[in-house]
């Protein structure tokens, strides 16, 4: 039972609870109209202390498609909305107006503070560089739908694996399933941080390898999860120019990939996936966006205890 719970970090839910959430997501996708009045009379508060249009739209459309309503603030007007008030106090008040809340805030741990004070279910919509659990749910649902399973997969992560929060969360979430093998593809400078290697990969005895060249491993992958390699992460321009093309996915590289491999990306992309790949049936990053909305619908319903 997820009713009344919060979602602050990706591992707050057991794999069984996630499974139920994914079953519900699939049901909603099959017959969305059957759910269009599920949350009639309920209000979702979206508290975006920093702007993130995509995440906010995903939550708001999710609630509207369930027949519920939305209040909230975002970005520039956040400071006037909160008027220097503490997160704890703001959430105590919001808990009186709304039935469920999403918070996005630049400070790490802000969503936990919110959940301890709101008295209603709170969903973490991103707390700085710390956690973004609904992105992880979206990724897992996409893998489950596209590959039919969450176990026995060879998953390649490519790009900036040092700073990529999305990557760390997904590695941690996948490490709970059987037979996952991680192929970590990145320049030396952007390999996964020590805590990922020690706590997750070695700690849980996962199969993994770290490589610098995408071409060598592409033919073996079930999933390729791409992330952006940002210029500002490099110490000098030469290194960036030398490396950037090796981490760009184009149709030529896609020729090497298995027919049933899928390509994922948390979006927004810059140039790490060429636009020509978009029409390749293996490209699933826009499917991810859609899955993200449906998994948020299932999440809102479950936390509110709707059937």
């Amino acid at each position: 039972m997820l009713k009344g719970k919060n979602l602050i970090e990706p591992l707050d839910f057991t794999t069984e609870e996630l499974e139920k959430l994914f079953v519900l997501s699939n049901k909603i996708m099959d017959k969305p109209l059957d759910f269009s009045e599920c949350c009639k009379g309920d209000i979702l508060a979206t508290l975006f202390y920093e702007p993130s249009t995509r995440t906010r739209f995903s939550f708001e459309t999710a609630m509207l498609r369930l027949g519920g309503q939305v209040i909230g603030f975002s970005g520039e007007n956040a400071s006037s909305a909160a008027k220097g008030e503490s997160i704890a106090d703001t959430l105590k008040a919001i808990g009186c107006y709304a039935d469920i809340a999403v918070i996005r805030h630049p400070k790490e741990g802000s969503a936990l503070v919110a959940s301890k004070n709101a008295g209603i279910p709170v969903i973490n919509g991103g707390d700085g560089g710390h956690q973004h659990p609904t992105q992880t749910l979206t990724d897992l649902l996409t893998i489950k739908r596209e590959k039919g399973r969450l176990a026995n997969l060879r998953v390649g992560f490519c790009g900036d694996l040092l700073f990529g929060r999305t990557v760390h969360s997904l590695i941690r979430a996948l490490s709970r399933y059987e037979g996952i093998e991680f192929i970590l593809i990145s320049p030396e400078e952007l390999k996964v941080p020590e805590f990922v290697r020690n706590d997750i990969l070695r700690g849980k005895d996962c199969k993994y390898c770290e490589v610098t060249d995408m071409l060598d491993v592409l033919p073996q992958l079930d999933i390729l999860y791409m992330t952006r390699v940002q210029r500002e992460r490099f110490f000098n321009e030469e290194d960036y120019i030398r490396l950037k093309d090796s981490y760009i996915l184009d149709e030529e590289k896609m020729l090497l990939a298995p027919k049933d491999m899928i390509v994922m990306h948390p979006l927004p992309r810059v140039n790490e996936i060429s636009v020509e790949v978009d029409t390749d049936p293996r490209a699933k990053y826009f499917v991810q966006v859609k899955n993200g909305m449906y998994v948020r619908m299932a999440l809102i319903m479950s936390l509110l205890g709707k059937k």
């Binding site: 400070k107 790490e108 560089g129």
Partner: peptide, 13 residues
């Protein structure tokens, strides 16, 4: 000691 931690801005927690 993490300057990005919510405890650095939220009083009274």
């Amino acid at each position: 000691k993490n300057p990005r931690c919510v405890t650095s801005v939220e009083p009274a927690i």
